[in-house]
Design a protein around this nucleic acid. Structure first.
Lengths: 191, 191
DNA sequence: GTAAAAGGAATGAACGTTCATTCCTTTTGA
DNA sequence: TCAAAAGGAATGAACGTTCATTCCTTTTAC
């Protein structure tokens, strides 16, 4: 096994364990076991568990962005851009439930709160498409004139909730249901 | 200090610690210290930590329900009932941020997922006002004909998100902003 | 071409710490 | 005086992390 393979195996094992049952269910020894690697080996690639968790988060973000931007076109009507962006977002998460569950765990942990604070205070560059979309929407008067944070919550809140419920099996999001759900989100933020 | 006082102190200490920094930041020894009680005393009132956590959750639910039902009237238009219910819900959480943060922590833990599964599968009786409201809305054709779970997510998703962001100081929810946010939620679920 | 030597990646047993829980002593209240 | 309640030190399991050692690859020397 090559060097990068080992790193990948560690990251994959951590993703699986944490996504499936949360941080508390992923001791380093278990991550090592699932990655088929010695416990000490993890520390050749990551300084400690916090670093592993944070780097994994960043990797997932970096995988996600290009995919949802692939079909996104800036100079289209706001509504169309919104539907496209959020449809592709839900599709990505449905196709990659481990990624979704991991991001969720991360956001609901002290790591995530800190991260969010940095993003909102502008200390960290995020995926600016969303911000641009909402700002354009406000200035074109097709989106409600509410604080950006609230618009984000109105859009991402339901998306996160329905995706979680689909992955947990509480509801089935087929293409039609995804579409109707995102239309409903749009109804919430549009003027 | 009377017997019930001690129990209350333990519950209060646990609520504070867990709400402020999550389960991992609330070891039994610290709960005991903050409650001004011996570590062993906790076990006279709760069989173990899981029981303490679950009973505290149920207590918070039991405190919440009467408050949001206080001004709720069944035979009013759906829209009015929706606005009243969710406004009172947000107000309660803003007035009781520890309760909100605790419920959030609980819901985002394995306890919470299990709990939610039981509720959705009907194994546990919940606050049926919400279900009745949405079902009435659908049958009166004023609410979108979507699965109940999705309607819940469309309504509770944003509410949870904005409340969290208010409590974390990312936005300020004054009365006007609460009202506009809940109107936006209504726009999302109404036909 | 081959054997010896070096380098460094990988290992997992061992360590110190933290935690939930238990157990035994002390205090309380009737 | 005694049973119940409270206290907190003791316990052992679980955890993240370290480090002496092994193992494997690459380099060196002839």
């Amino acid at each position: 096994m090559s060097k990068t393979d080992k790193r990948e195996e560690i990251v994959r094992a951590a993703l699986e364990l944490i996504a499936e049952n949360g941080f508390h269910a992923a001791p380093m020894a278990l991550i090592a076991e699932r990655a088929k690697v010695g416990a000490g080996t993890i520390y050749r690639y990551f300084a400690n568990k916090d670093v592993l968790i944070s780097e994994l988060y960043q990797e997932l973000e970096q995988r996600l962005y290009p995919v949802i931007l692939e079909n996104y076109v800036e100079n289209k009507p706001i509504r169309e851009r919104f539907l496209r962006l959020f449809t592709d977002l839900i599709r990505y998460f449905i196709a990659n439930p481990l990624d979704f569950r991991y991001l969720e765990q991360f956001h609901n942990s002290p790591y995530g709160t800190e991260y969010r604070r940095d993003k909102i205070l502008g200390k960290r560059e995020g995926c600016d498409v969303f911000r641009n979309l909402f700002e354009d929407g406000i200035s074109q008067q097709v989106v409600k004139d509410l604080p950006l944070v609230i618009l984000f919550d109105l859009a991402f809140g339901p998306i996160q909730a329905v995706t979680r419920d689909h992955i947990l099996g509480f509801v089935t999001l087929d293409e039609a249901m995804v579409s109707r759900t995102i239309e409903a989100c749009w109804d919430g933020i549009k003027r």
